[in-house]
Amino acid sequence: MSLAPAIRMNGLAFFILPSALLFALFFFLPIGLMAVMSLLTGNPVVAPNVAFTTRHYARIADDPYYFEVIWTTIRIGLWTTLAALAIGYPLAHWMARIKSRAGHALLLMAVLAPMLTGIVVRTFAWMALLSDKGVINQTLQSLGLVSQPLKLMYNETGIVIGLVHIYVPFMVLTLTGVIGRIDERLEQAAENLGASPLRTFLEVTLPLSLPGILAGSLLVFALAISAYVTPILLGGFQIMTLPILIYQQISANFNIGFAAALGMVLLLVSFVLVVAYNHVLGRVSGQRDLQ
């Protein structure tokens, strides 16, 4: 039997090879190294007498503070996702249904425009608006509407506002594609059969756009729980999230093992979310192989 057909490369494989290499080198290898580092007493490349240990995970498990940090991170992610969905869905629906090509282009530009500015710049702009001496508080105080500045920054509210502004485009773009593919005749049929626009939306459009809602939510949640710049600047260093704690451990405590363990926890949270997402998506879309 000739081996030639077996070893003959599929043409498509050449296109997959670069991305496979990229993932292997810059995703799986670093994560593998991080997993190993989280179980070592030091860096075996530069330090002698390195041994396996579970102390980094024990430290996380033993101190309720780290659970508070994990919950704060998840809570900020959830609020950001909910707010981005609430703002993004109507906009995405509008974009998907608008008949005018120019109108669609204008809406797309409006959604994409904030992404042309860096996250740091946008966050500083929010600081200029939300701080105690910022535009909003100064205006309210000068109008005599408040005597003390409103607490718009240095708390979770400020962080969520900043993150929502950054991540709404991700939600909108994900949803627009899905809503755009929904056959409008289904909605028209429901209305012809006597359903109100609200009922048509709730029983036809919304269920059919669920994959988009889930995909957009997953994307925004994953980005929000791993955000660093916005939480640190708008939270005024008084809201501790996992990425901030990880950076603190590396940059100021030089404890790479503990930082790696915290990184694995963040990865685990994301992994659980992806599995749950695939499970839900499989059920709602009837694609059993996704479960």
Partner: peptide, 15 residues
Amino acid sequence: HKDDIDSRVNRIFRA
């Protein structure tokens, strides 16, 4: 004492 100090002050200054 840095780890213990950090752990404590992070709690003190959390919002």
